[in-house]
């Protein structure tokens, strides 16, 4: 989203009488990107819907503490990333005993056309991506599917560009291995 649009949104959000309108515009502007990053992490639409709503509620609740040190986009994306990882962690603790169980559950969702309607090859790639540790999966999705730059990812995740490059590189190599495409 161009910075001028973010500025306009922030102006609307700063005034009590335009705050609601401004927030509705913010949701409209960011919903698809936020949905996409969460959906790739948790696979099911229902879970994604819950998380996305929670993300926007958190954004609303913390608008006053947003100090504009980072861009609005970076800030919202950071909340989305944290919420997705928190959800997976909670799922591991509450429902499944290990990360492998969560991964198995998510792989089963890929086989369900309600949750995923790609072809066999796409399903194979998604299952391989699910084998990556959650943070590495996030890095891969952000770069490969969302086309974020390493600089943007660094702002969002608070990780150095070098570490992100290494993580992405490792993710690609693991995927090649899982997919047997040497």
């Amino acid at each position: 989203m161009p910075q001028e649009d973010d500025k306009r949104l922030l102006n609307l959000l700063a005034q009590e009488k335009t705050k609601n309108y401004g927030f509705e515009l913010l949701v409209k502007a960011y919903q698809e990107r936020i949905y996409s990053i969460v959906r790739r992490m948790v696979i099911s639409h229902e879970d994604t819907n819950d998380i996305v709503q929670d993300i926007f509620i958190k954004v609303w609740q913390n608008l006053n503490s947003f100090r504009q040190e980072s861009s609005l986009y970076t800030w919202i994306y950071r909340i989305a990333v944290n919420e997705s990882l928190r959800y997976l962690k909670n799922k591991k603790i509450k429902i499944f005993s290990s990360e492998a169980d969560v991964q198995k559950h998510l792989e089963q969702l890929i086989d369900n056309p309600l949750h995923f309607n790609g072809d066999q090859l796409e399903a194979k790639l998604q299952k391989a991506i699910l084998k990556l540790p959650p943070k590495q999966r996030l890095v891969f999705n952000m770069k490969y599917y969302e086309d974020l730059t390493y600089e943007q990812m660094s702002d969002i995740l608070g990780t150095s560009i070098g570490a992100l490059k290494a993580s992405y590189h490792l993710a690609i190599k693991k995927l090649e291995q899982h997919l047997d495409i040497y």
Binding site: Y35, S36, R39, R40, I43, H45, P113, L114, H115, F116, N117, G118, D119, L121, E122, K124, L125, Q126, Y144, Y145, I172, K173, L175, E176, L179, I181
Partner: peptide, 19 residues
Amino acid sequence: FSEKRLESLFGKRNSFPVP
């Protein structure tokens, strides 16, 4: 190269249905 190879083999399509 690896990224392009992945893309050519598996694509980047969003195959997650949204109501």
